[in-house]
Design a protein around this nucleic acid. Sequence first.
DNA 1: AATGAATGAGACTTCATTCAT
DNA 2: AATGAATGAAGTCTCATTCAT
Lengths: 208, 208, 208, 208
Amino acid sequence: MPVARPRSARGVAAAVPRLTHADSRAPQVLDAAAALFCRQGYEGTPVRDIARAVGMLPGSLYCHFATKEDLLVAVYLRGVERICQTVEAAVASLTDPWERLEAACVAHLEAILRDDDYARVVVRVRPADVPPAAERLVAARDRYEALWAALVDALPQKRRGDRKAMRLMLLGALNWSQNWYRPDGTQSPRSIARQFTALLRQGMESPA
Amino acid sequence: MPVARPRSARGVAAAVPRLTHADSRAPQVLDAAAALFCRQGYEGTPVRDIARAVGMLPGSLYCHFATKEDLLVAVYLRGVERICQTVEAAVASLTDPWERLEAACVAHLEAILRDDDYARVVVRVRPADVPPAAERLVAARDRYEALWAALVDALPQKRRGDRKAMRLMLLGALNWSQNWYRPDGTQSPRSIARQFTALLRQGMESPA
Amino acid sequence: MPVARPRSARGVAAAVPRLTHADSRAPQVLDAAAALFCRQGYEGTPVRDIARAVGMLPGSLYCHFATKEDLLVAVYLRGVERICQTVEAAVASLTDPWERLEAACVAHLEAILRDDDYARVVVRVRPADVPPAAERLVAARDRYEALWAALVDALPQKRRGDRKAMRLMLLGALNWSQNWYRPDGTQSPRSIARQFTALLRQGMESPA
Amino acid sequence: MPVARPRSARGVAAAVPRLTHADSRAPQVLDAAAALFCRQGYEGTPVRDIARAVGMLPGSLYCHFATKEDLLVAVYLRGVERICQTVEAAVASLTDPWERLEAACVAHLEAILRDDDYARVVVRVRPADVPPAAERLVAARDRYEALWAALVDALPQKRRGDRKAMRLMLLGALNWSQNWYRPDGTQSPRSIARQFTALLRQGMESPA
DNA sequence: AATGAATGAGACTTCATTCAT
DNA sequence: AATGAATGAAGTCTCATTCAT
C-alpha cells in the first residue's frame, strides 16, 4: 500500500543536468540496452543494469518501454533495420555479383563484430528465448535474410547446387564468428570476410 | 533412461538397504540436465525443472552435484567427450581426407541436431555465460576443435589459404545450423553436411 | 475521450490561449474518478486510468487534486450530497410514512445500482480503506444515514422494536444488493425496493 | 490441513524452534492470511505482512502456495466450508423453520463478526477483485447460499412473495453488518440476528 | 540418497507523486 | 493547465542453495 509521499520540495542545486522534454533519453536507453544485450544476452541483463548505464532508476525505464521485452524488440528491430542499410549501402555501388557478396560479408562482419551493438543483438539473441515476441523477431530477421538470398541468387553458378544451402552456410559461418572472434587477434572482420568468400567461390580444390 | 555410467568405477555396496552407488540416479540427473540445457539454455533452465524431470525435489539434486554450474560442466565435458568419440568413430574406417571430412560433418550434425543432447549443449551454451567455469569449458571445446584441425590439415590443398579459416568457416556453419534446422524440414543432417562439404571442396565456380 | 460536460454551459473560447476557470476539467476528472472508483474500487484504480479516461497524463491530475485521496474524498462527498438530494426529492411530495420509505428505497437503489456513479462510490468504498480520510468520509455517510433515521422514525410502530435495527437492516440489505444485482436480470431497482419494503412492513407471516 | 507425516518419529524439541517436516506451517500461513485478508482486504494485504505474521520471509510462502491468489482461494474455500458447517450444526437439532432460520442467523453473524476469520473473508472479499479466481469463489459462495435458500424455502408463508427476495434481503443485511458492527458496542451478533429475524417474520406493522 | 521447508538475494513491474518546462 | 520524464518505494514472484531429518 504505497502511501502518499509528503510534498516536501527536494533539495539540491540546479547543477544537476535535469533534462528538458526535448532531451528524451529513450535513445540512450535503447543504446544501453543494445550494448548490454549484445554482451550479456537478454536473460543475462537485468533491467537495473540498463538503468544504471543511463543513470536512471529501474522503474524509470518504464516511461519509455512498457516491458523489458519491448525494449528487446525495439533494439532487435532497429538492429535489423541498421544492418540491412549497412549491407545495402556496402553493395550499392558495385555490380559484380561476387564483389557484391564479398562487400556484404565485410559489412556484415564489421557490424556484428565491432561496430553496431544493435546488429550484434540480432545475431546474439535467439528469438525463441523471448517467446511472446519470437514471431516478430523472426519476421524481422527473415527480412534481412531475404537480402542475402538476393545476393546469392545473383551469383553465376557453373554447377548444380542449392543456393539456399550456400546462403545458410555463409551466413551461419559469419554469424558464428561472434563466438570466436577476438578484437585483438590477428584477423580483422574484413580479412575473415574475404577468406570466407573466397573459399565459397573457389573451394579448396581450385588451383591458384 | 539410463545412460552410460560416468567415468570412474566405484566401490562396493553396503549390506544396509541403502541404495548402492551403482543405483545412483546421478546419470539420470545428467541426462535430464542435458535435455533441458540444450533446449532452454543454461540460464533458461531452473534446477527445479531438472529435478522434476527425474522425479526429485530440487534440493535432492545437491546430493549429486554441488552446484548448478557443476552440473553444466559435467554435461558439457561429457558432451565434448561423446562428440569426439562419435566423430572419431565415423572417420575411423576411412582414409580419403575429403571422405573423412564429410563423414565428420555428418556425424557432427547428426549429433548436435538430433541424437545427442550432451553434444547439443556444447554447441548451445556459451562458456562465457558461466564465468567461473568458462575456462574449463573452453579447454574442452578446444580439444574437440583440435580434432577438426587435424581433419582439415590432412586435406590436399592446391592453393594457398588459411586452413584455420576453413575450419572456422565449416564448423561455424555446421554449428549455426542449430538456429535454423527443423527436424520436420526437407533437409536431413546428412544432406546438409554433404552440401556444405561439397561447397567447401569445390566452390560455386567449379564446373560440374 | 471527452466526457459529458458538467452542468454549466461554457463561454466562448477566449482569444488568449489560457483557459478560463470555467474551462477547468476538474469536473470531468471527478466524473472519471467516480466511474472508475465505483467499478474497480479505490485501491483498484490507478490514477493513470483516471487520467487516460479524460485524455490527460497522470501528472496533470495534480493540477486539480493534491492527492488521489483528495480525489476520492471529493467524489465521496459529492456522492453523499447527491444521494441525499435524490432521496429527499423522491420523498418530498409524499406524506404517508411508508410511502415515503418505499420511495426512498427506490431512489436509493436506482442511484447506487444504475444512475449515479458518485453515489455508488459511497456504497462501494470503505472509509477504512483510506485511513487519513476515513473520518471525513464517515461523517458524510452519517449525514445520509440521519436522513434514513428520520424516515424510519416517522413510521407508525405497533410493536416494540429497535428502530435503529430496522434502519440498519434495510439499508444494509439495499447496499449489499450492489454485490448481486445484475442490470440484465429480471429485477429492477424499483421492484427490489418494493419487495424489501413490503417485507419489512408486513413480515412473512402477515396474511395477504 | 495436516500434511502426511514422514517416516521417522521425531525427537524432543530442541531449544531452537527448527521445525520438523511434520510441522508444516502451511496451516499457520493460512490462518495468518485469513486474519489479514479479513481485516485489510486482499489487495490491501502484502504477502510480506502474511509472511511476517508467521515469521517467514515473503519468498518462503511460495513453498506452500503458488501465488497470493491461490492463498486467497484456499482461505476463501475453507471459509465457505467452515461457515457451512457452522450454520448446519447450529440448525441441526431444531425443527421449527423460524427457529432454524434464527439460529442460522446467529451462527452466521457470530462467524463473520467475531469468530471465524475464514468466514469473514468470504463476506469481505469480492470475487470480482480477483478475476482469475472469481469463478471458483462465486461457485463456492453459491454453495453456501443454497443452504440459505433451503432454510428460507422451509418457512411457512401466509402471503405471496418472493422467497428469493427474502433471502437476499436477510443475507444482505447480515453481511453488511460487517461494515458497521463494533465489538465494543451494545449489540451482540446474537441480538442483531434476533432482531433481524423478528423483523422479517412479523414486520413492523404486526401487533405485539 | 532424498525430503520438504526455508532462505536471501534479486528479478520485473506498478504506482502515486514531483517538477522543470 | 498541462506535459513528459523521472523518482523511490513497494509489489509479487523466482531461484539456487542450505539443512535438519
